[in-house]
Design a protein around this nucleic acid. Structure first.
Lengths: 197, 197, 197, 197
DNA sequence: GGCTAAGCGAGACGGTACGTCCCGTCTTAGG
DNA sequence: CCTAAGACGGGACGTACCGTCTCGCTTAGCC
């Protein structure tokens, strides 16, 4: 019966309460002071936790920040599901832009910046945030294809990039505002070439 | 009273040798230890210069790094000028992608990352690199409009974003390869909606 | 109900093996890294023992160190017993000085130093080492008083201090050598005032 | 004229104000929390000084403590100068005992303890505190010899040790109280053997 | 030629956060 | 109920940089 395979390690088990407290503290601090202002010391103090405990779970403030952000974000920007896939995409793009105009956008930018210096952080960001969203977007597009609203020979990957990259670029570079008009322009640009004649 | 030669301030003039030494030191250190490992102290020491001298010329390590990098970049990705503005854009996009697949791409990514923590650095990046290129692109597009190859009601800013943002996103996030096929897809996506019927 | 053997407490009995392992580990570490470098964590790890086990037996690293040291010390500097108590004291003082010039002296110094920061360690040192020796010295002096070699109104406690304190001071402060001449000087100084006229 | 020998080093000169503030802070903390409770961090904070500044001047808390103690102590326990050298010594011994019963005694003990682990600290303690006092004591004794109050063949070094070592031993070991009676006993013990017959 | 003013190198200054170490307590599973 | 293991909250360690400051020394134009 007693399967020895999983093998609980000896010693006091790690406290998930501490883990949660750290993630929540990091999330709150990210929103308040941004990634640059984030410190391991601050996180530990806010979480009521020893610094060593933070280092026991994550190797760097980047790792904590990434995980905290993803944990705090996951259930936020969903796709609607109406008859028109094109409208659904547009609606979600507007929602996303709305979210990115606030603190969320700044954090996303900082996490992408972090990823430039830390490939592991980038991988976590992709797997934990970006790629799932891309898949969701592609599902909606596939629905549109099935419904005859989008040409069946469309390259969905390129399409997702064409739709969403401009949003990311504008929050990253701030060269022009990310307003709803811009979103609509982009969407119409992309879709006008891909709707069946 | 004495309003002589226009503007020469009194005192010892700034040493351009120091300025050059700092930029070279910063450039060398960037290559050796990367952005994250760069410090004002290190730059000053390497350049054989007092820290105060560095601060007298630039407000932050971001500003030094940006200027050092842009000075060393001088990237010549010009637009061709054929009869077809659409073809010209595509040709240049392919050249740009080619450049960005190499070391130049990493540099641009790091500059953008730096800009997330340092607004002034971002401004320098925009003014010194990005905005001039956008203008060049828009010039080509305007040529296309004039030649009747692009619809006159097209929003050129959105169009530039739609064309180039996907390139930036792929070098920043590396979620999919930045190959020529992808470039062609994006271009055709964008232009197919904007060529006159 | 079952009231068997009088006093055996329930549960697993304490492991004397652990106790021994701890003392040996402490002794070894003391020799390797000295008092300052000694840590409870290090002792426990070296002994292959949980930290809690160390704390269950001793309240502080000072207590462990003291016991480990006294256990390893077993110093046998006994008093001779001739007709002359004064000579017996002098003989023993010379032996003691001899012992203290070597490693034993360093040990005693370190124990005294340890006692300055740890009252409990000091108490152990006094009860386990110093006070028994004082009593032995006083016994010899009492013998001298009984034999008419020492004035009966002599304050024995002060006398012991006067005789031995200079030895301790010279090993503690190293301001001058602890040679036999010095010992003889001290002894003659003290006794010359206390022998009956 | 311009003698190049002393050669002021380049850079901003060290701030003696900071140095003084650190010593005063350390002295105050030593009296309040003792050597064990002393921390570099606490000293820096109390002195309103960066930790690095403390480390720039002294390598360890022991070094700061030693210097702070000596600086704060220097002008305290002087010898009177009456006709009787023997009385002068006794008077000063009583004063010293008085001082050592308070916080000063604890600090001296801790510094001696420190010296057991740190030879440099011990040297500073000897040169800066103990040896000068020994010389002063020997001067008084020489005065006594000159005045015919002390036998000219007395070994002054041994005599000083015989007089003062018991005081140190009682504050170090606390095996018996350091009261005035004890001081008088010791003094009479030592002098009774050395006054000329 | 002397004066004034600013830039120069150097590096100490008051700070903040780092990542590590050890403290003494606790929480497990197992003997 | 003791044991080994080791995570926990806490706090000091010594280091590295930050951005500012205070020095003595140029290096210039102006009187």
């Amino acid at each position: 019966m007693s399967a020895p395979s999983p093998k609980r390690p000896p010693g006091r088990p790690r406290s998930d309460a501490a883990r949660q407290a750290i993630l929540e503290a990091a999330d709150a601090l990210l929103a308040e002071v941004g990634f640059a202002g984030l410190t391991m010391e601050g996180i530990a103090a806010r979480a009521g936790v020893g610094k060593a405990t933070v280092y026991r779970w994550w190797p760097s403030k980047g790792a904590v920040a990434m995980e905290a952000f993803l944990a705090g974000l996951t259930p936020r920007i969903a796709y609607p599901c109406t008859d028109s896939a094109v409208d659904d995409i547009l609606t979600q793009m507007l929602r996303l832009a709305e979210a990115y105009r606030g603190a969320g956008g700044r954090v996303v930018c900082e996490l992408i910046a972090l990823g430039q210096a830390d490939p592991e952080a980038l991988a976590v960001f992709l797997d934990g945030y970006l790629l799932p969203r891309r898949e969701a977007a592609k599902d909606v597009l596939r629905r549109g294809v099935a419904a005859g609203q989008i040409r069946p020979d469309a390259n969905l990957d390129a399409m997702v990039d064409a739709l969403y990259a401009p949003i990311f670029l504008r929050i990253l570079l701030r060269h022009q505002p990310l307003d709803d008009d811009f979103i609509r322009h982009i969407a119409s640009l992309v879709f006008s070439g891909l709707v069946p004649r």
